[in-house]
Amino acid sequence: MMQRRHLLGAAGLLAAPAVAWAQVWPTRPVTLLVPWAAGGGADTVTRIFAQGLERELGQPVNIVNRTGGNGITGHAAIAHAAADGYTIGTGTSEFVNFRTLGLADFGPETLDLLSRLATIPAGVTVQAQGPWRDFAGFAAALREARRGQITGSGVGTGGSWHLAAAGMCRALGLEADRIRWIPSNGGAPALQDLVAGGIGVFTGSPIEAQSLAAAGRVRVLAIMGEARLSTMPEVPTMREAGLAWSYANWFSLVAPRGIPAPVRTALLAAAARAHARAEVQEQMRARGIVPVWDGPEAFAGFVAGFGETSTALLRELGLARA
């Protein structure tokens, strides 16, 4: 009996710090790192979500943009932060491909994958004064054009919107690199290049192109999502246009690996409640962003499938280094 009591007492002492962690966290502001610049898709999703997270935690959530290295700098900062629950981050699809592209020894296992937060579908956007009035016309021109004759942009080489273009070309029965990719620092400069006639197509988010479309300077021909955008209901999906291809960039909640289990549990519960708040859902949908909360297990499975698809496309593009 004495031995049993001794063991129970020891177990209680070992469990006490874990219980204390859960009871006191958070006692100070939480930092949420974003690997991309302010004003972009990742930043927008993060700021909307952070409003709900602040209310659920009862502490400020400070957003810090850590840019550079095609997303490597910010993602690495998240992975290397103290694993205490006070520094978390927004992960974007690029971190899945860092190793494949030979950019860094960094993969999904480097981070604690908590959940997706949102998706933003790709699209096909062209000059308003150009010859293509609908996706069928653009697809026909792409089939007839020489390899590389039509140029596209929206992100750096091998990035999300480049993969969207490559997958679309493959779905049309063409080479993955039928569209010659012109790297850019984001959607805004790429769209300006499109308006100026420097590129033929922008395969980034139609949301970024919305103001230019409203001004009659560009035309969005199709959405690569599973459903039409509420903010652009007149634009058909690619599936409606007859092509079995969809692609959406995604944004997720990630953290350093090794956060104490009680804190991780509390963080996940608060984040799920924050994501489900009406004002968070409404603000995302009002911008054409699709809210998603799938949790750690489903998110890990999604990432594995995404990695297989993106690696195959990067190999066809001749960009895979690993």
Rank of each mutant, 00 (worst) to 15 (best):
G71Q: 04
L33M: 07
H75Y: 03
G107I: 02
D43L: 05
R55D: 02
R66F: 11
A42Q: 03
G71Y: 04
T90D: 14
P35S: 06
G102C: 12
G102N: 01
L32K: 04
G68P: 00
G39K: 05
T31S: 15
I78R: 08
A104P: 09
V45W: 03
A50D: 07
P108H: 11
L53F: 07
F98G: 04
G40N: 08
L114G: 14
H75V: 08
E94M: 08
A50S: 10
T46D: 06
I63F: 04
H80Q: 15
N65T: 11
P108C: 07
V96G: 09
A83C: 01
Q59D: 01
V64E: 09
V96S: 03
G40F: 05
N97V: 07
G107Y: 11
V45G: 10
V64Q: 09
L33T: 13
G41C: 12
L111H: 03
T44M: 13
F98I: 03
L101Y: 01
N65F: 08
S93D: 13
G102W: 02
V61L: 07
L32M: 04
V34N: 15
A76T: 14
V96C: 03
H80V: 11
L113P: 13
L111E: 06
T67G: 06
A50E: 08
T87Y: 00
H75T: 02
G68C: 01
G41F: 10
G69C: 03
R99Q: 15
W36R: 13
Y86E: 00
A76E: 15
V64R: 12
F98E: 00
D43K: 14
T110A: 14
L103Q: 15
L33R: 10
T44I: 14
I78D: 07
G71F: 00
L33H: 04
A42E: 12
A104G: 09
T67Y: 08
N70G: 09
Y86I: 07
T92Q: 05
G74W: 08
H80L: 13
I88S: 04
F106P: 08
V34G: 05
E94I: 12
V34W: 05
E109T: 14
I88E: 05
D43Q: 13
N65W: 08
F98V: 04
L57S: 05
F106V: 10
G69I: 00
G69Q: 10
S93Y: 12
R47V: 06
P35V: 09
T46A: 10
V30G: 02
T92F: 07
V96Q: 06
N62A: 15
L111P: 00
F98K: 00
E109N: 14
F95T: 05
A42Y: 00
A83G: 02
G68S: 02
I88K: 01
T31H: 14
T90W: 08
G52Y: 00
N65D: 10
